[in-house]
Design a protein around this nucleic acid. Structure first.
Lengths: 188, 188
DNA sequence: ATCAGCATGTAAGGCGTTACATGATTCA
DNA sequence: TGAATCATGTAACGCCTTACATGCTGAT
């Protein structure tokens, strides 16, 4: 059965770049990473404890203004574990889209309901796409480091697939009989 | 907190169309649905028991050649629950792509490793896309029912996003310096 | 006869979310 | 002074996966 908990790898990946506190790790995950992976405190803190016991990371307690702040640092063993994971070919890529599930079973209700569900999805995607594009713009102005190449690729994955989603939404709405009378608003 | 278990809705959705055994339900889920939702026996059978207790479905035991076969049937209350769910606007759409996670942290290893990971992803997507296209072809020959519209839309969602993935793969490989010397094989 | 598929379940364990609990600091 | 954010955790609970357990049927 072995280790399945991927949050460890997220943590190692982040710590490989810089030392961080659990709180910082959470913030990083809530950024661009959240588009393809999630994490919570109840997830992260126990993982940090385990990983320290395994010798993958070390902790450094610093008293910052009378308060404890715990910063984690990746060890050699941790770096090795990260590489091992990167070189493993077996991956789990999973989509759990409730919108598609609903659409699949939409024969049970009216077309208005299906259309509304597609619109809800579309609105969310538009919002997310806007965010991805700000990431992309920030990246264009940033220096060309090796890490940036990878960051940039994941962002462009998001942008391209989300644009495909939007195209599909338009087609789906048309197919379900939505008359598009609105003038298309360019997303300025 | 309320009900979170979406497998119930998958089951209701399927039973809304026809009576099925637990085993049949699993097979249906392993078909086109598996692209956006998963289910297992350890998941399905307990759900069926719960849902029967809740009055959402009823069971019919039939002795088929000396063997017990349990077929489930959706009730009025079950149909209402299905509609309620369809009309709920709050949805959870989640992507958990380990490939992207690896790519994001690929600065920790060589470009060869990143390229290999993209290739593994690409191969999987090509395989899945082929399957989706057979679904699509089957659909084209099938009668134009209301249910088919929705089935068709979910399949086309898959095809279009997977094609976007493949485009991205090509771009990513190029960006990471993969020289494409192979003559492109048309997927006949 | 044997093997794949049909058919129904249970049990253990893992993983994750949410809510709870606590308290310091910073900024308006 | 009050709210937001920083910061670290724990506990309960829920859901799912995997493996196990069992036995029949149909095809080769």
């Amino acid at each position: 059965m072995a280790r399945e908990r991927k949050i460890d790898m997220v943590i190692l990946g982040l710590l490989n770049h810089e030392d961080l506190t659990g709180y910082d790790i959470k913030k990083r995950i809530d950024g661009a990473i959240s588009f393809f992976w999630k994490g919570s405190f109840g997830n992260i803190y126990p993982a940090l404890k385990d990983m320290e016991n395994q010798g993958l990371i070390t902790k450094r307690e610093l008293a910052v203004g009378g308060r404890d702040k715990i910063t984690y640092h990746i060890t050699k063993s941790g770096k090795a574990a990260l590489k091992d994971w990167l070189r493993e070919e077996q991956v789990s890529n999973e989509l759990k889209y409730e919108t598609l599930l609903k659409l699949f079973f939409s024969g049970a209700d009216s077309r208005e309901v299906s259309l509304r569900n597609i619109e809800v999805f579309e609105e969310q995607i538009k919002k997310d796409l806007k965010l991805l594009k700000t990431y992309s713009e920030t990246l264009e102005k940033a220096p060309d480091t090796e890490d940036h190449v990878y960051y940039s690729l994941t962002v462009s994955f998001g942008i391209e697939t989300y644009e495909a989603y939007l195209k599909w939404c338009a087609k789906a709405k048309k197919m379900l009989g939505k008359r598009v009378m609105e003038i298309d608003e360019t997303e300025s």
